[in-house]
Each structure stands twice: as structure tokens, then as C-alpha cells.
Design a protein around this nucleic acid. Sequence first.
RNA 1: GGCCCUAUCGUCUAGAGGCCUAGGACGCCGCCCUCUCACGGCGGUAACGCGGGUUCGACUCCCGCUGGGGCUACCA
Length: 497
Amino acid sequence: MKVRTRVAPSPTGDPHVGTAYVALINYCFAKHHGGEFLLRIEDTDQVRSTRESESAILDSLHWLGLSWDEGPDIGGPHGPYRQSERSEIYRRYVQQLLDDGHAFKCFCTPARLEEMRVAQRASGQASRYDGLCLTYAPDEIARREAAGEPFVVRMKVPDDGVCAVQDERRGTIEIEWKSVDMQVLMKSDGLPTYHLANVVDDHLMEITHVMRGEEWVSSAPKHVLLYRYFGWEMPKLIHLPLLRNPDKSKLSKRKNPTGILFYQAMGYLPGALLNFLGLLANSVGEGHDEMMSLAQMVERFALEHIPLGGPVFDVAKLDWLNGRYLREGLDREAFIANVQAWAFAPERLARIAELAQPRIERMSDLGSLVAFFFAGRLPITAELLRGGKLDDLAMRQAFQLALWELDALREWKVAGIEIVLKQIADALGKKFRDVARPFYVAITGSPTSVPLYDSMELLGRDVVRERLRGALDVLGAPSKREQDEWKALGAQRAEAS
RNA sequence: GGCCCUAUCGUCUAGAGGCCUAGGACGCCGCCCUCUCACGGCGGUAACGCGGGUUCGACUCCCGCUGGGGCUACCA
């Protein structure tokens, strides 16, 4: 049987290096065995999923040099490849489970469920649906449904015994059924949850090997059970380690740049980033050069060399590799072409020109005026930040608030950025003019520069986040306690507006 | 709190009972090259978390502890 793997990102934010990591492993494994690799979009979360995010993810993976045999952009024989377009399929399978008595309708309110969980936790129990709606007679269920009560569909889960999950890399993982929750399979909006959609799609798309993040280990029994209920053959399971921050916690943008777009903006070469992820995905044997192409990674790929412990994303090593790509991997022409594409892409250059042209008297003024567009972290000093009217506390609060609110921004555009910064001034009870100054310093490196919002938009969310974090570090990163207090500032603002 | 995963230099890792006085890569330090810097070359620093077993022998197998991580949603 032909090996078929997939990567199934959820389009709920900026493209993440973790997605690329999982995609790379799935790609290498499939291609190493002469199989197929496909991409599926898991956008069943209507609230958080966006089309912008989806295309950003696809673009990023393409930029890295990854390609797929089937996917939402290119189609294929098992489509559609976007879960939001497969609702009818899931509805049918949910109905089948209902008919077979493997699932049931649940009318419990969020409040009741919350109360139940609090009680369970207090008594040292695993959090698990207590089965109330399982006790209703058919006519009771029909009555509630007819009355228009919202409901979800949950899967039935055995009360006793253990579920043996077979992981091709980790061996057998045993989890007691009583610690497995009666998972919601279909939300009250009629859309499936991950668990149902994932199992149905993997089966229909003939996936043979599911290689996914370690965070899914604990819900694997639910998937095993669903395959059993449907009478389908289980694909092989391989749980991949999670990439980590230097402090070993799960890689997060709060602590580290996690966006593929960030590495793009910083001038890393796609091959270098992909190569680096490959180093974390599959150890290179001694005597082999660590610098390798995708084809070489495919060639050398071995399941048993996937690490089990979560590797720290070590930017220093990425930097070294990228340096080699820059000086060994490119001839003079290619180097120039890359620099041109990175720094002087036509639209970007046009925007920068628009900002700079009115503000210069000699073309030689250009360098210092717009240099910050072509830099990573800026060498900001506390003295420079302190030149305005805000004291350290106010500046730190402003930066921290900005970090939070800017992350929550759906669209990274001038308009949204402006609103966020103005609201921060309000929340702090300061004049916007005074609040703006430290932002100019943090973002552009100078209190006087080209317009701030445009600069921020052009720089991109990830680079802005890094610079704000850098400025905050210079003044002193807020303590846990300060952060808790400051969160209220943001909340008050939200209520007021 | 409950359940699960995991554990070799600061970091990524090799190691599948004797080949280990534990190897490689990044980082760091030193030397060389050199108009500076970088590159490059050479050398150095640095690890088997702890305690019990099993065995003639354990970094390698088993158990416990500890550390780290994940999950615990009508998010994925």
C-alpha cells in the first residue's frame, strides 16, 4: 500500500514554525517511501479560522520549498481539502454513530458542565462527562429537541478497562478508559470537532501514517475508539515532539519568534530554515554534513531517528546554518537576487519611498532614515527611551499593553494598529503624543522618524513584537505580579469602549 | 489536582549491555591566518539527573524518585 501522510494546520493565526516542522517530517517520511503527502485545512473552528491565515500558511510552506500532492489550492481525488466544505460528510457519519448507539445527544449547559468539572477536580477525579443526558428516555430527547434546545453530540466511552494506543515510535501507550472524556463530536453549530473530522478525513483520504504533535497523545484513545466504532482500519500513529523555547516550555510567540514570517522578514533563507528544522526532526549521522537539501533530508530520513524529547529551537545554530547558506549556497548573482527580493521588493520599496521621500533633503539622508526597515533587533538604550514625558512605569505598561493587544489584532493593518495605540494612551490616561514617542524609539530607533503605523505594518507583526519586547527588556521586563495588575488596565479599557 | 509523554555536554544529538578514558555539530574560550571584522584552519571547555535492582559487566534493561513537557473546552 502506498504511504500517504498529511499535515493538517488550523488557520487561526500566523504561520508557525511548528507547522512547518510537522509538515517537513510528514513530507520526508512519505517521500522516503515513495508515497504521497497532502495538506488539509482544519477550519472547523468558525470563530477563529480565517482565509487570510489559510493562505499565509500555504504561502509560507511553499516559500520553505515544501509541496503537496493534494490540497485545497491544487485539489485532488479526495477533496474538498478544507473541512469547512465537508460539513455534509461529517453530519452523515455523526448520524451513523447516533444510529449505531455509539454517540448521544447532550443538552447540558456550559454552566452545568463547568460546575461538574470543578467538583470532579476538587475530589481528585479526572474531568469527564457524567453521563446525565445518557439517562434520558427517547421521548425526552425528542421533546427537548423539538423545543429547540441546543445540543451537542458526544461519543460514548467505556467506563472500564484500558485503551492500548500503538505509537510506532514510542511503543504501546496505555490509558484507562475512565480517564477519557465523552468527547463532543459535533458542536451545537452543527460542525464537527477536531476529533471527528480528523478521523473521518484521515480515513476517507486514505492516510496511512498520522504523524502529529505530542499534544494529541492523550486524546488518541478517542480516535482509536472512533475507528473501532466505524469499523475502519487504524492508520499508524507517530507522535512528534513539540518544539521548545530555551526555557523548555512549548514554543510560544510570547517568549520567542515562532512565525515563519518573522524568519522571512529577518532575512533567513528558506532552505536554511527548512534545513534547521530538519536537524531537529531527524538526527544527522556522524560524518554527514549538517547542511543538506530537502532531497537529502528525504533520502536520509528514518523514523527511528525522530527525537522523543522536545528539542529547543536554538536560534544561534539557525544563524550559523543561515550564514553557510548565504556564503556557500549562493553565487554572487544569486546572492544579489536574494538581497534584492528581500529588501527591495517593488511594493515594499514603493511604500518606503512614499514615507521617506517627503522627509529628506538629500538622498544621502535616506540611509539613516529608513535603515530600521532593514534591521532586526534595534540597539535601543534606556536614555533614548526616557527622552519624553512618560516615566518608566508608564512606558513599560504601554509596551506590555501593546504586546497583548497587537497580538489580538485580527488584521495587521494601519487602521487597527492606530486604534490599539490610541486606546492604550486612553487606558493610561496620557496624551497620545506622549505615548507615541517611546513607540517611535522602540520601533524605528529614533523619536523622530517616518510615520509609525505604516512602519509597523511594513515591518510586520513579528518584528514589531520583537522590538517592543526588546524595548521592554531595556526598561525591565514586567514581573508576573505587574503583568496581572496591568491586565486590568487593558480590561478597563475594553469595558469603557 | 488527575492522566500521559519524556530525561547524554549550555543547545541539537550519536550511542540499540562490554567497541565509552562517552563521539559529532552549534555556542563559548584560546591559537593561527589577516589592514579591521567576518570567513577558514587548529586546539580547548563541557554531559550519561538521583536511588534501587537485573547482569560477570549498564549510558544502554526493569522499578521508584526527581526534573522537564503535554493534555485535562461545543480550540485545534
